[in-house]
Design a binder for these strands. Structure first.
Lengths: 342, 342
DNA sequence: CTTAGCACTCGATCAATTTGAGTGCTAATA
DNA sequence: TATTAGCACTCAAATTGATCGAGTGCTAAG
């Protein structure tokens, strides 16, 4: 276990390193953080902390740098202590409300906002849970072998997809089908699915096969935990010294560019509401060993909203967490309006 | 005017520079391209070409590097000479067809494909021209003050947008409206708009104001030349030596990340069908002075499809042009199927 | 237990030096 | 007259070496 003073030294190292980005030495600490103690004393403590796996030296005769373990301790401490602080940003948050245009608009705004405020990369995602409720469905014949599938969920999420059909279905047939399904508006997809399946069996016997494929497509869209993700601008990454190295930049970039990896990452935090931090190797992606992800999610009735900030391990956790808290709070204040019905 | 030999020297410089990325000297040319002539002879020609503005030296006592003017000549020559070559890639193109899922699917595939084949950055865009035809419209009440606007155009482009409404319109009212508009399916937006406006005036007197706003939104979506853009992965940029410098990379990145700049750029070529090349300063964006854009567009009835590749000035134009030709041809082969009706 | 002092390590920085590819010019050559 | 070989010169890039400074570990004194 750490002594009080060791903890103090450790947190100071992390703090100073987050500030400066350079390995921190005993003299700096003695001068700036622990003015009562001499450099030599601190040196001894640091040596012990290194043995315990909290610090490391990039090379002999360099200052110390925090390990993931140290960040972890730091973040946990910060997470405990927060609630006190509550600084501004109101003006920007109002902005978010103003630009709201359905779920997509809100999430785009949110990710942009997070990016702006944090100076890292903001992401915003909504995962529709199994109990997503149908608001309206529609089928539109595009040509002899393609039908446009249109699904609106309560809350305003819209999915559309072109599905191939081996048989040519008339627009009337499709409309009839849509009309029937729409009587179930407000019900969960599970129920709708059963009704739909029965209809297909009974009334559309000869088309059953082709419809089954469309049903599968619908399932993919609605039954699984489908996540829609928005990533803010990556431009800030250029300003972060940790990513000046083109190699590291590249690694992170390849992750951020494709949604799949990110979505998986977000799922990490999806078990529990509230704020979670994933530091360095704690996530499975080797490309992200120099990064940290701060996630904050909150689930309302049919969907779970996750906001996150991705940055270097050495990020300003306090600020990011506070920003995240704010934006999320603002975001979940609103969907309540939509809950009346559709 | 250039002599035959000067042209030969010049094209060789451009070709070699595209290959190697390093300034090319007289000896290299003498050994590899113009084996009949000695380095000294070529040196004289090069000096002349420099005077004429086709070549330049990055510094005294370095080899020569092509200017934009030289690239221009090179590309024009290539554009003239092509048609002859016709190498493979069939297997990948079939792949494109297979993954077709409406316009968006096709364009996503196309931009990915261009990116893969060219090793630069592929983009694909569809601009709907004024004469876009309506296939289906729908309005869905989301809550007391928001309506989801849904427009499907012939060809399968789908637009959806939440618009705010100062008055609460019932789903029945909305449905009635949609039904009326849908009788005009297959007509151009211009006609639909008139009908819609009349309806609003006559039947919806007290809601007229709120509807006008929605109409504006629709106009924005449908009347202007709305462009949907897909950009391929930027990952290839990391492999291009010209962009190893983080500064240049950053400049290009900021352009590619936001659609607006790119869309403007694409419009450059939108005047004429066929292949166009924009080299370096020829485009207005100072951030792109080290880049070239090869565009290829083709308009069918209601929309114009543009494919492009963005890469360094020193790109393999021959290959890119041939790739572009292929993918575009493949893409426009299909929409014909959709022209029957909706 | 704390601290001052000292020897030592190692990255970073800077100047001097070398190397090599390339040029321009001139004189010899076909 | 057009071409080429030869030579002196230039300049970026790579190499080397010296120096600096921040930091450590260890030891001995307070």
């Amino acid at each position: 276990m750490l002594t009080e003073r060791q903890l103090e030294v450790l947190l100071s190292v992390v703090y100073e390193f987050i500030e400066s980005g350079e390995h921190v030495g005993s003299r700096t600490l003695s001068k700036r953080y622990l003015t009562g103690r001499s450099a030599a004393t601190i040196r001894n403590e640091m040596a012990d902390l290194e043995d315990m796996g909290y610090l490391m030296q990039p090379h002999t005769s360099a200052g110390r740098v925090p390990t993931t373990r140290a960040y972890r301790l730091f973040v946990d401490t910060v997470l405990q202590r927060r609630r006190a602080k509550d600084q501004g940003n109101r003006e920007l948050l109002d902005n978010l409300k103003a630009h709201r245009n359905g779920v997509e608009g809100a999430l785009t705004s949110a990710s942009d906002l997070l990016t702006q405020l944090s100076h890292y990369v903001g992401v915003a995602a909504v995962t529709q849970l199994r109990q997503a409720r149908l608001s309206k469905i529609d089928f539109i014949r595009v040509d002899t072998s393609n039908v446009l599938l249109l699904v609106v969920l309560e809350g305003g999420i819209v999915h559309h997809k072109i599905v191939g059909m081996p048989y040519d279905l008339s627009q009337d047939t499709l409309q009839d089908l849509a009309r029937r399904i729409n009587t179930l508006a407000g019900h969960e997809w599970g129920e709708v699915r059963i009704m739909l399946q029965n209809y297909i069996m009974q009334e559309l016997g000869r088309y059953a096969d082709s419809c089954r494929k469309a049903l599968d497509d619908l399932d993919k869209l609605l039954a699984g935990e489908h996540t829609t993700l928005f990533t803010g601008s990556l431009a800030n990454l250029f300003n972060i010294p940790d990513f000046q190295d083109i190699g590291r930049f590249r690694a992170l970039f390849s992750i951020l560019e494709q949604e799949d990896g990110l979505v998986d990452l977000l799922k990490k935090c999806n078990t529990t509401d509230g704020i979670g931090v994933i530091i360095g190797e704690e996530n499975d992606l080797p490309e992200m060993e120099n990064c940290a992800v701060v996630l904050s999610s909150s689930s309302s009735e049919g969907q779970r909203t996750t906001l996150g900030v991705i940055g270097p391990k050495r990020m300003n956790y306090e600020k990011v967490i506070s920003v995240l808290d704010k934006v999320l709070q603002d975001l979940i204040d609103c969907p309540g309006e939509n809950e009346g019905d559709g």
